[in-house]
Design a protein around this nucleic acid. Sequence first.
DNA 1: CGTATCGTTGATACCTGTCAATCTTGGTGG
DNA 2: CCACCAAGATTGACAGGTATCAACGATACG
Lengths: 247, 247
Amino acid sequence: MKASNLPETSLDRRCENCPVRHHAICSVLDNHGCHALSDIMVHKHFVRGQQIWSDDDDAHVFAIVISGAVKLSKMLADGRQQIVGLLFPSDCLGRAYSEKQQTFAEAATDVELCCFPRQKFEDVLKQHPEVEHALFEKTLIDLDSTREWMVALGRKTASEKMASFLLQMSHRSELTKCPYDRPAPELPTFVLPLTRGEIADYLGLTIETVSRHFTTLRVNDVIRLIDGQTVEVRDPAALASMAEAKD
Amino acid sequence: MKASNLPETSLDRRCENCPVRHHAICSVLDNHGCHALSDIMVHKHFVRGQQIWSDDDDAHVFAIVISGAVKLSKMLADGRQQIVGLLFPSDCLGRAYSEKQQTFAEAATDVELCCFPRQKFEDVLKQHPEVEHALFEKTLIDLDSTREWMVALGRKTASEKMASFLLQMSHRSELTKCPYDRPAPELPTFVLPLTRGEIADYLGLTIETVSRHFTTLRVNDVIRLIDGQTVEVRDPAALASMAEAKD
DNA sequence: CGTATCGTTGATACCTGTCAATCTTGGTGG
DNA sequence: CCACCAAGATTGACAGGTATCAACGATACG
């Protein structure tokens, strides 16, 4: 799908009502200090598959994910692709202090972003060191999880990668659920934000291998595929043990 | 090799004479401001193979690499290992703002470190925002190169990985050479800081595969192995083209 | 209802891992 | 000085996991 340089709607949404107000880096600001950000903020919507920026675009935007999922990817000259990061609500999007983006960014689902002009955003970072510090800590956590994923890419088998991925998605979906929504112990269920091809690009596998392992997990009753995108984890313990050791 | 909790010599070295003074994060401080760091600094030596900290150690040390190479790695329960980062002079070592290390750190060669107690180092970061900013920018660069390496782990073939690794080592060695040392155009030559097994753990391959590809590169006259650890790149262009596309 | 996209399944090939033997190198001690 | 040994590196034979190529099925959409 094609990118549009000037994406769609621009809502005037108040920070006080923002669903990620208390989880994103702006949580270190009080409502007054938050004006520094809200003054330069623009909300934008992207539809599934829409490019947010491309590899060699100038890095003139910085954003916070409000809803949906964004995939960061890199490509080799011959088209092989690797997804190097998945971003969910409250995560930050964009490379501060660089003139160039180093990755592609694409909406994996429909996405709502809180966007800032990068230059102005960096001015805010300078004026509000506590925001820069929050962004720094988030970056350190990103680096930790990126390194964790390197172990999967370099050392895990296909089925271990699949199990690790499904666990990761399962945990991520728990975070966004309100605990009061699930009073009783149910089986973890979530909607995959990626197609089979994207999962393959995330795991360093092919579509066919991903599909085959979905089938294996299904026939072994570890998961149930409710509609191809919706996964119910029927045996969380099995999935967890598969993530680190061969079955 | 075993770790020693209190590594060896503690030199009293002046920052002014430090070989990484103008490349590490302390370069943003003038000689006066540098006292904040030098007051809490201790130089330590580690021999090749010595553990600097282990996976579940408390993160009570932060350091700058002065000489040598450090490998950061992660392990799976069954012993499979993945090197997630290589650190060279002027690079930073240690996880700020975390109580726990998330990786192993081991001296890949004999190493000299400029060590700080983490808590005191974080105090310096608080008092000198320009140092925290420098560390933040270094962390962003780390994240960029980590993501770049994910592409290699997930999507490149063994020979592409080998070529990428050798190019990376070649470029890194150029950085540490004084330009005046090599007035004439010579073939790039460098000493590998890693054993075959460590290279395998970095590339997500086995020792045997690494060794076979070294042999292939040698018989194709792309590289020359001077003594097993010392590599002369006889055909840099071929190496560069191998790094991204199958031969 | 045709078409496009995505996903599944099958047959086969090949790259890399595994297992094992041999070679090289460096260090140690008789 | 040389024999011996340990660790690392190389090479070979073989197996297996994943990629590749291809066909088919499912779903959504106009």
